[in-house]
Design a binder for these strands. Structure first.
Lengths: 223, 223
DNA sequence: CTCTAGCTGACAGAAAGCTGACTATTGAGT
DNA sequence: ACTCAATAGTCAGCTTTCTGTCAGCTAGAG
């Protein structure tokens, strides 16, 4: 269970990290917002403890950027400002919980456990095919170790293909998974998604095969 | 078709069960998560309607335990919380569909039907003949372990032959299975399909015998 | 040997799929 | 409120692949 602590106050950071480490979590520390974003991009964390009052890029900005890509990582905001507006603002931006400074370590642990349990990332859920790796928990995809930029639609289609790896998937089925029951999307749209996915995946050796008259097939990494 | 409804709200539960019963399903009710898990273990259900907001063991936990053992049962999650995170989370855990309360019964029925249909289709049923193996669920054919490229027509004819393995199949019957009603295809077309199939299968020891004046015969793996 | 059912290569028209371009929409940033 | 950028979905034209027919050929029954 990996936790990223984003905190500029050295003393508070040390206390927090140490306490969490002792509790058995793998803890990393980021002292600035910029660094925090970089680390979140690079590593896959199960929880982010985010101090709002950071020098430079502030916590809200970090959160906003984080939510752009990793929609699912739980974020616990820590703020010195006893201001209900910040609380609302933070939750609007997609924070999962909010804690005021000063706090006792027991509360930190309780909230940490609660968040992790709620998100149950203990059962990290990944799908893969050859050099393609998808982390459902963090909602991120990688090929050849490089992060892959996917729009929501592309993501959904790819996940569906991966879940049905080795099976031929009909376009109708893809449409159904996209818009749960109101099927007002053309089948051609699926062709477009596939086309866009291919342009991102083909060069990495992940091929979506067309099975004429049936649909598409993501073959197992047979080579 | 047996459905297990997991719902603690007595009124909602009754309405749901009654409606599904009337639609011809055999419906059982579980009021708690613990009971739900026990019943799933014991009985063989074709679908589970799972409310997330349960007292005691919550829906996610039920789902997690269920997936540990009976991975294939389709699960439709029902949640009062209008929260995309729950949706993603539930789907991550292996739910097959997601519905928000309040819902109209028509939607419930539509989703139920869709899930049962989809599941029935994905059941792995296979046909085989010697080294030839056909997976109807995945819509894939293999010979000698190698995937076999077939067009729709070839696929249909081959499936028909396999379904009538050991029997002589008349060309007229094949034409009928192809174009359900408009039989404006020449019998010669069947000869062409067979010819094309043979060129793909012969080298793998799968022989379609001609029975002069009658039709074709796919012999059982005599060897 | 003859006759006929069946085989199969070739082909043209049809169908299915691909993709660049375009429009509408959304959402962030100012 | 406005702008800019990214995304979603449609469309149209193009490419690829399949289909069904034909015609000439093969081969089995008598």
């Amino acid at each position: 269970m990996r936790i990223l602590v984003v905190e500029d106050d050295a003393i508070l950071a040390e206390g927090t990290c140490e306490s969490l480490s002792k509790a058995g979590y793998a803890v990393d520390l980021a002292e600035t917002g910029t660094r925090a974003n970089a680390m979140i991009e690079a590593g896959s964390y199960d929880l982010v403890l985010l101090d709002i009052g950071l020098p430079g890029m502030d916590g809200f900005e970090v959160l906003r950027r984080l939510r752009k890509h990793n929609r699912n990582i739980p974020v616990l905001i820590i703020s010195a400002r006893d201001d209900i507006d910040f609380r609302v603002y933070g939750l609007d931006l997609g924070a999962d919980d909010f804690m005021l400074k000063p706090f006792v370590l027991a509360e930190l642990h309780a909230r940490t456990r609660a968040l992790l349990r709620r998100h149950a990332l203990s059962e990290r859920n990944t799908l893969s095919c050859g050099e393609l790796l998808i982390d459902l928990g963090a909602q991120r995809a990688h090929v050849d170790g490089e992060p892959l930029e996917l729009s929501i639609r592309e993501w959904d289609v790819l996940v569906y293909l991966l879940r049905n790896q080795g099976k031929v998937v009909r376009k109708e089925a893809i449409v159904e998974t996209l818009c749960d029951w109101k099927t007002d999307i053309t089948l051609n749209a699926v062709e477009v998604y596939i086309s866009r996915l291919r342009s991102k995946l083909d060069s990495h050796g992940v091929h979506i095969r067309t099975v004429r008259g049936f649909g598409y097939l993501l073959e197992e990494p047979a080579e």
